[in-house]
């Protein structure tokens, strides 16, 4: 039985990308091998380690436990879409400042998982962060500095959101005034 390849088109980090792949191609291999986005890593084969975590339509998922064909049409963000060297995302900046990484292999997945956590719970306690990390494994750090990093990132992101809200509110007021 000949099995045809499928064209899979996704929006990754704001850019539309597509490639023809076997139906069995795992999303993580599609991202890494077909699209060249090697920031997402593979650490296990049983969906435990979470090194491959990305967001799909805003939700943290393990890209080793999803087929590329299942992602067709989805909005994907990988670590490459978080921030740049010169303009790090608060999560990246906090991991840097708090020494939340050592070898850096699990880090992209951990950060993406934590982006997913903060979406669910923007102001998590230490315990909630530790529970939120059930789906990732870091062998280097003992997690403590990751927890500090996530706490810091949550704070920065919350403040930024507040400012944003204020800005929006302000601009709305200005807009109304103009009427």
């Amino acid at each position: 039985m000949a099995i045809e390849n499928r064209k899979v088109t996704v929006t990754v980090n704001g850019q539309e990308r597509s490639a023809e792949v076997e139906p069995r191609k795992l999303l993580v291999h599609y991202l890494r091998d077909d699209l060249g986005l090697t920031g997402t890593h593979i650490g296990c084969d049983t969906s435990q380690c979470g090194a491959c975590t990305i967001t799909v339509n805003g939700d943290a998922v393990k890209s080793c436990t999803m087929l590329a064909v299942q992602a067709d049409g989805a909005e994907i963000m990988t670590v490459e879409g978080l921030g740049t060297r010169n303009e790090l995302h608060p999560m990246q900046q906090s991991f840097w400042e708090e020494h939340g990484l050592q070898c850096g292999y699990c880090t992209p997945g951990v950060m993406m998982a934590m982006i997913g956590l903060l979406k669910e719970n923007p102001n998590p306690s230490e315990e909630e962060i530790r529970e939120g990390m059930e789906g990732v494994i870091c062998r280097c750090t003992g997690y403590q500095f990751i927890v500090s990093a996530v706490q810091k990132a949550a704070k920065i992101m919350a403040e930024a959101n507040e400012k944003n809200d204020q800005k929006v509110a302000a601009s709305q007021l200005v807009g109304e005034g103009n009427l």
Binding site: S47, G50, T53, V56, D59, A60, V61, K62, T65, M66, A113, G116, L117, E120, G132, E134, G135, V136
Partner: peptide, 9 residues
């Protein structure tokens, strides 16, 4: 169940 990533899928 599982973890956040698993619960999302």
């Amino acid at each position: 169940i599982g973890d956040l990533q698993v619960r999302n899928r």
